[in-house]
Amino acid sequence: MNHQNLAGIESSAPLITLENVKKYYPIHKGIIHRTIDEVKAVDGVNFSIYPGETLGLVGESGCGKSTIGRTIVGLEQPTAGRIVFEGEDITDLSAREMIRLRTEMQIVFQDPYSSLNPRQRVGDLLAEPLRVHRMVAAPNIDKEVDRLLELVGLPRDSKKRFPHEFSGGQRQRIGIARALTLRPRLIICDEPVSALDVSIQAQVLNLLKDLQKELKLTYLFIAHGLGAVKYVSDRIAVMYLGKIVEMGTAKELFSNPKHPYTRALFDASPIANPRLRDREKMVLAGDVPSPVNPPQGCRFHTRCPMATELCREQEPELTGDQLHASACFYSET
Rank of each mutant, 00 (worst) to 15 (best):
Q314T: 14
L215W: 06
L182H: 07
L318N: 13
E19I: 11
E332Y: 01
Q110M: 09
S48V: 10
H3S: 14
T103Q: 14
G87K: 09
K29W: 10
I107S: 03
Y219P: 07
L226I: 05
V292Q: 12
T308F: 05
G81Q: 07
F266T: 00
E252C: 00
L6H: 07
G169N: 08
L207A: 03
F254C: 05
P291D: 05
D142F: 01
E144Q: 15
I187G: 10
A250N: 03
D190I: 11
F47C: 12
A268G: 03
V232S: 01
P129Y: 01
V73E: 08
G169M: 04
L226M: 04
Y24H: 15
V229Q: 04
R279K: 11
L215H: 09
T218M: 08
M247H: 08
N20Y: 01
G153T: 06
P274V: 09
P192F: 08
V132Q: 03
H164S: 08
D43W: 08
T249Y: 06
A285G: 00
L57M: 09
S326L: 02
G248T: 12
K213R: 10
D89F: 09
E19R: 15
V145D: 12
F162P: 04
Y330P: 01
S233T: 03
G175C: 06
G297L: 06
R131I: 15
V288N: 01
S11Y: 00
N5I: 05
N46H: 12
S61N: 09
M135P: 00
L323E: 12
E214T: 10
L75E: 08
K230I: 01
E315A: 15
A41T: 13
N20D: 15
G44V: 13
K65I: 14
D37G: 15
N46L: 09
R263P: 08
L116A: 09
H133F: 10
L182V: 09
R312C: 02
A138W: 00
F254H: 04
R119I: 08
K143I: 13
K160V: 08
S233M: 03
Q4L: 12
V283S: 01
P163M: 04
V39G: 05
V58S: 05
D197K: 05
P274T: 07
G123S: 13
K251N: 12
R275M: 09
V39C: 08
G286R: 06
G169E: 05
H33T: 01
C304F: 05
T262K: 01
I83D: 10
E38K: 14
T35S: 09
H259C: 04
F221M: 03
T103K: 15
I222A: 06
H324Q: 14
A327L: 10
D92L: 11
P155Q: 14
V283N: 02
